[in-house]
Amino acid sequence: MSMLRTTLNSIARVPESKHFIQSSRTFWFGRDKVRFPKDDDHATGEERLVRMAIARGNKDPFDLQEQVRGPGTKDNPNIVKTFSGTRMVGCKCEEDSSAIKYMWLHLNEPKRCECGFWFKAVPAEKFWEQK
C-alpha cells in the first residue's frame, strides 16, 4: 500500500511545464500553444476539392439532388449536367407514382421518356478546375 502511494505521489509531482491540457482543438504543452488541423485543413484529394467547392457556394458539386422538371418539350428539354459522356437519369412520370423509370442520356442527344418528357445531357462545369 505504501508503495502505491509513493508511486501516485511521484506522478502528482510532475513539473508544471509538462502538463497536458486539452481545450477543444487547441492543445497546450506547457507555455506553447499548438493548433491541430481541422477537417477542412486535413482533407486531401477529391474530398478537399469537394469541400472547397461547397465553401465557394456550390452546395451540390456532383449535381445529385432531385431536380424539378421543366416544360420538357423537344425544343426545350430538361437539362441534365454530366461530367462524362453519359448519365443515367430517373423520371418520375406521374406525380403520385412511386415508380421511377431510368434511362441513359448521351451528351447533347435529346431523349424522350415513356411519359413524353424530353431530357438532354450537357457538359457540367468541372468544379475541381475552378479557382
Rank of each mutant, 00 (worst) to 15 (best):
G70P: 05
G85E: 07
T86F: 06
I21H: 05
N58R: 13
T44M: 10
R31D: 13
P77E: 07
K33D: 06
I21N: 08
M88S: 07
G70T: 04
S24F: 06
M88C: 08
R31M: 10
E66P: 08
T26F: 05
E95H: 00
D75R: 01
I54E: 14
I54Y: 08
S24T: 10
L49A: 15
Q22D: 05
D60F: 02
C91N: 15
K33G: 04
V80G: 02
T26P: 01
V80Q: 02
K18F: 10
R56M: 03
P77M: 03
A55H: 15
S17I: 14
P77R: 00
R87V: 12
E46K: 12
I79T: 15
R31S: 09
V68H: 09
R25H: 10
G72Y: 00
R56A: 07
G90V: 04
N76F: 13
G45A: 04
D75Y: 04
N76W: 09
R35I: 12
V50P: 03
F62S: 10
T86V: 07
R35V: 15
P77Y: 03
N58M: 13
R25A: 13
K18P: 01
Q67P: 04
V68P: 02
R31H: 11
S23L: 10
P77I: 00
E16S: 12
R69C: 15
G57F: 02
G72E: 00
F20C: 03
D32E: 14
D40T: 12
L64P: 03
V68I: 12
L49Y: 08
S17Y: 09
K33V: 12
F83D: 11
K74F: 08
R48V: 11
W28L: 14
K59H: 11
D39W: 13
V68W: 09
S98V: 05
K18E: 08
D75H: 05
R35P: 01
E47Y: 11
R51G: 08
W28N: 13
N78R: 02
R48L: 15
R56C: 03
